[in-house]
Design a protein around this nucleic acid. Structure first.
Length: 410
RNA sequence: GGGGGAAUUCCCGAGUGGCCAAAGGGGGCAGACUGUAAAUCUGUUGUCUGACGACUUCGGUGGUUCAAAUCCACCUUCCCCCA
């Protein structure tokens, strides 16, 4: 608490843009500030991009400020065009409500919402019951279309097309900020850098309606050193929901980030103290792996808890290190009767969903990418029998890094 | 409201009657090299089949034709120009 949280955020490289750098710093150093970050429930789980915002929220909370997490149940009905080249798919109200409840549960693990230390509010509370004409008269008047069109977030969309519904998103988000200012004394909005113009919209609105000053600050988007968005895999996003991305896969994702990205990720996504990170930044070559281990472990711990992080770590070390322990490896099972008399290796893999099609399995085997209990499978007409299972389990390795354990189901 | 254009396999994008499961690139996957990294090189990338081959795919629905991603009609969605 002795150091200003602004300095912490700056030191770790979070800050992208601020409306008034000095004033914000002074404000954060002198009083408990109520601030907000919005999350639109467009999927049924948070992902790493959201995580970065939550980490910031956590820093802020620890520094004595009061976070408001806005669940965008209302804004998700419209869809934010920022940073997109095409229109979002429209979600039904039921989907949104479901997603919002998923978000709610996940956020609780990262920010302390007990005893009013942080608030979680769904903006559908006020947005859904707005009256069109009065909204236009009260809020719409304050927006200049000319100015909106010059905003970066709309520029690209003017080339590709932008529907009226999306064009309204900025007004809705601005109205949220005004509402929170009025009802909760919230005078600071944070968000990803793609939210910059939406945040400015809210600040302008507060100035015009209330004659008061509000502040905004955005954070760097989580990108790789090559500027690509992080947290994407061939299977899609890296989710925080353990049912969508297992703790083991989650751990592996971070264990395998590019050398060039490790330090940045440590700064932005973990609470590892800066002096330690700076120490790690001096590590070279193979030793960078140690930094990746710290990253993967710390991050898994933040998201899934210490127990899961330990498990993911020991599973990884067993597989990639010397040991052969398979305890914590992702496991699939096969019914005993399917196995009796032997089963084609391809059928086994397809049935257990370890490969999507036989064609892909053949390719994998032809190219020497499949091993059973560490022995390369040479032909794809191999029959697997119970004899192949050692102590009731079979370790399937695809390529270099993907391990699965198959067990027999009675 | 009027006129013009577009919709292709994960993505971008070629393909304008048979030689098309469909060029090229990206991405993915696998192999070599490594440090569970990057870069590089090689192979591969609709489904089924040991293979020959068979089957399904080019926005949707019908039609023309021996034969259609390619032609026609209607529909849907999107873009551009004019108002």
């Amino acid at each position: 608490m002795s150091t200003n949280v602004f300095d912490t955020l700056k030191e770790r490289g979070f800050i992208a843009q601020t409306t008034h750098e000095d004033k914000i710093r002074e404000l954060l150093g002198s009083e408990s500030v109520t601030f907000y970050i919005g999350f639109d429930p467009t999927a049924d789980s948070l992902h790493v991009g959201h995580l970065l915002q939550l980490i910031v929220m956590s820093y802020m909370q620890k520094a004595g400020h009061r976070p408001i997490a806005i669940l965008g149940g209302g804004t998700a009905m419209v869809g934010d065009p920022s940073g997109r080249t095409d229109m979002r798919q429209m979600l039904t109200q039921e989907q949104i409500a479901h997603n919002a409840s998923c978000f709610r549960d996940q956020m609780k693990g990262l920010v302390d919402f007990s005893e009013g230390k942080a608030l979680m509010i769904d903006n559908s509370e006020w947005l859904l019951k707005l009256n069109y004409v009065s909204f236009l008269r009260d809020i719409g008047v304050h927006f200049s279309v000319n100015r909106m069109l010059t905003a970066e977030c709309f520029k690209s969309r003017l080339e590709k097309g932008l529907s009226f519904i999306e064009f309204n998103y900025m007004l809705m988000q601005s109205y949220d900020f005004l509402k929170l200012y009025q009802d909760y004394g919230c005078k600071l909005q944070l968000g990803g850098d793609d939210q910059w113009s939406n945040i400015l919209g809210g600040i302008d609105l507060i100035r015009r309606v209330e004659g008061a000053e509000a502040y905004g600050m955005t954070f760097k988007l989580l990108t790789t050193s090559e500027g690509k968005k992080m947290g994407k895999t061939q299977k899609g996003a890296v989710w925080l929901d353990p049912n969508k991305t297992s703790p083991y896969d989650f751990y592996q994702y971070w264990r395998n980030v590019d050398d060039a990205d490790v330090i940045n990720c440590l700064k932005l996504l973990t609470f590892v103290p800066m002096d330690q990170i700076e120490e790690m930044a001096t590590w070279k070559d193979a030793r960078i792996n140690d930094a990746k281990k710290v990253l993967a472990y710390e991050l898994t711990k933040i998201v899934h808890g210490e127990t899961e992080a330990e498990k993911a770590r020991s599973a990884s070390e067993a597989l990639f290190g010397q040991g052969t322990s398979s305890e914590n490896m992702p496991t699939v099972s096969i019914p005993k009767k399917e196995l009796s008399g032997g089963i084609q290796i391809l059928d086994l893999l397809v049935n257990t969903k370890l490969i999507p099609s036989k064609g892909e399995g053949k390719r994998l085997i032809q190219q020497g990418g499949l091993s059973l209990n560490n022995e390369r499978v040479e032909t794809f007409d191999k029959i697997v029998t119970e004899a192949d299972f050692k102590e009731g389990e079979l370790i399937v390795r695809k390529g270099k890094k993907s391990y699965h354990r198959v067990v027999v189901e009675e």
